[in-house]
Design a protein around this nucleic acid. Structure first.
Length: 223
DNA sequence: GTACAGATTGAG
DNA sequence: TCAATCTGTACT
């Protein structure tokens, strides 16, 4: 059964753990590409120095508004209430808005995807309410359908699912190119909670145990 | 306009 | 251990 909006609207740490075992279904050239989520990381906006939405230096409201308006056409169809959306963003402390991270502010159940190191896309799913920049990075999948690419890392998983920047903002609840379905459920005792990867710059937040993976699963990425 | 680092990966 | 590769971000 397809996951509905309410699943994604809940607190980010809860969604990050409950995404383990869920299936990602991608319709590509009349075929279905399927993977089971086995590893995730939570990024909680302005409270989290590792997040793209964390502002090291305070960003003036004027600058935030400029970026929102310049990029409005890219998110317009996904936003429920424009006034409320903007008001919430302006109210957040330590939050940064950029052309890239604007999709993080969409309500739970949307895709935030971006390129790192010039080569690799990273698939994130937004969580919580509209106007709050929180998301879950999907780090690895257990392949269900066969392919030459093994999706045991955030970059390789986007190659496996044939995802690129055209999916920026995409709605996983209403869309038919990619969506999530119920798979297996795991107990808390089957979930390993540890520190996130590749965020040494995040000072004390680098030690937060916000990476989750299924115990003893062979597809989890290595550190 | 210019510099620089990054939520990675695979090869040596 | 290290380079590839290029966009977003910050600063001149």
């Amino acid at each position: 059964m397809k996951l509905d909006r309410n699943f994604f609207l809940r607190p980010t740490l809860k969604v990050a753990q409950e995404l383990l075992g869920k299936l990602i279904i991608r319709k590509y050239k009349n075929k279905l590409l399927i993977g089971k989520i086995v590893e995730t990381e939570a990024y909680i906006g302005p409270k989290d120095k590792a997040s793209h939405a964390y502002a090291k230096r305070e960003q003036p409201k004027k600058e935030k508004l400029k970026i929102i308006h310049q990029n409005w056409h890219r998110i317009e169809k996904y936003v429920e209430n424009k006034e409320k959306f903007i008001k919430r963003i302006l109210k957040l402390k330590n939050a940064k808005v950029t052309k890239r991270n604007l999709a993080e502010y969409l309500k739970g159940g949307h895709i935030y995807i971006y390129l790192v190191y010039g080569n690799y896309y990273q698939l994130n799913i937004t969580t919580y309410k509209e106007g709050y920049p929180e998301c879950v990075l999907i780090r690895s999948l257990e392949p269900i359908t066969t392919d030459n690419i093994i999706p045991n890392g955030p970059g390789k998983l986007c190659q496996y699912l044939k995802l690129d920047s055209s999916f920026w903002g995409y709605d996983l609840v209403d869309g038919d190119k990619i969506w999530l379905e119920n798979g297996e459920s795991y107990n808390s005792s089957d979930i390993i909670k540890t520190t996130r990867i590749g965020i040494d710059y995040a000072e004390e937040d680098a030690f937060l145990p916000w990476r989750f993976y299924i115990k003893n699963n062979k597809w989890v990425s290595k550190k």
